[in-house]
Amino acid sequence: MVATKDMPLKEYVLKGNAACAGCQDMVALRHAHKALEGNVIQVVPACCTSVVQGLWPKSGLGIPVLNTAFPAAAATASGVRAALAAKGKDDTMVMVWAGDGGTFDIGLQALSGAFERRTDFLYVCYNNQVYSNTGTQRSGGTPLHAKTTTTWLGKKEPEKLLDFIVAMHEPVYQATANTAYPRDLYDKFMKAKEIRGPKFIHIFLPCPQAWNYPVEKGVELGKLAVETGYWIQWERIGTEFTLGRQSKRFQDPEKRKPIEEFLKMQGRFSHLFRPERQDAKIQELEDYIQYRWDLLMKTLA
């Protein structure tokens, strides 16, 4: 893993951008771009990143950014890639930077099309599990029992298992990442940079606004997600699967921290503890963790 001192000093995420305090998207963007070192065209559909990049005529990102419509990120990226190919500029990375709404829901068709066409690009879904930019509405990435402004009493369905949908498109590179582990995230972008074809990185990204936790707790929450087994760090190059070193020991359910520790920190799950404890619902979330581990290890590993 890269040593912090070996990462490029140059910053592509500039000071004075419009992100909220404690925004983990900035951590993700910062380390992704340090790995890509500027030779990239970034396509951004409607999402938090459309806002945090700042107001015209300035930009909070020191790379070319093409904002596009909500359903159209992967299609727009296909066009950018084709234009680069027509001009013989094949060494530039084309990267989509999309939220969970723009990926799990409205952007899924374009994503599927671009992967089936074997488009040479990197699709990044930074997943804060909610339509955060529009003020916390449920998305296909919102977990079971989470409160949002369209599921006031808690979501009744678990999230869509996006990684499996993407995996069935057989990307050349697929990984999960987590902003609590920025050096690991950096390494994954370094790898993606070297591989041609459709690539996908799914980043777990706590959001203080939508999840309702103190702004300084983002990294702590990200780590708890891994330590409870809720988020699994893994990587797949072609069909070669590697369980991430942060997740390895939590494959054993005995070693995991109880899910409560992760849930209790977040206002969106407060109804599971107050006015009275909802044991059955907490257990449901706990059980779902093991279900996902089993599915992952049986199908992709």
């Binding site: 396509v43 159209a72 299609a75 296909s78 066009g79 950018v80 234009a83 001009k87 374009a110």
Partner: peptide, 27 residues
């Protein structure tokens, strides 16, 4: 000799045009 993209919908067709034209290609 150009690039033909067999998109999966007309919505994507127009946005692929937008991506290509934004990158300086005649589309």
């Amino acid at each position: 000799p150009g690039q033909f993209i067999r998109v999966e919908s007309e919505h994507s067709a127009m946005f692929a045009c937008i991506g290509a034209s934004s990158t300086g290609a005649r589309t």
